[in-house]
Amino acid sequence: MKNFGISIREVDNIRVLDISGELDAHTASQLENSLKSLIDQNEICIIVNCKGLDYIASAGLGVFMAYIEDVRGMGGDIKLTNMNERVYNVFDLLGFPTLYDIHDDESEALTGFNN
């Protein structure tokens, strides 16, 4: 899909997903497959770095809604970082900042996991 990209790297035993482009009902399945695959491998400390993300619709937020309970129940978390203002506003409109661990910067999220 040319308008959405996802890649995975590892930092201090934490899996970091770098997502870019536009996350909507068409591209959400790519994020879902990546998250599901990590969780299936018991990789439950996950950071989603949204630095390259230009746009998100509610279908994108739905992916995070579907997996956060499982991951937290297993002792992990999905932390979100580096959102631009437009993307953050969508999370904010739906009240996500009180329910998810959202950081300005990836290093803050890493510190959160290491503590």
Binding site: S58, G62, M65, Y67, E69, L94, L99
Partner: peptide, 18 residues
């Protein structure tokens, strides 16, 4: 109710609200 939906692993239902 986003908190309730997360607890029930539901998604969707947010479009009209947005």
């Amino acid at each position: 109710d986003i908190r309730e939906r997360i607890k029930n692993k539901q998604r969707g239902g947010m479009g009209v609200y947005l």
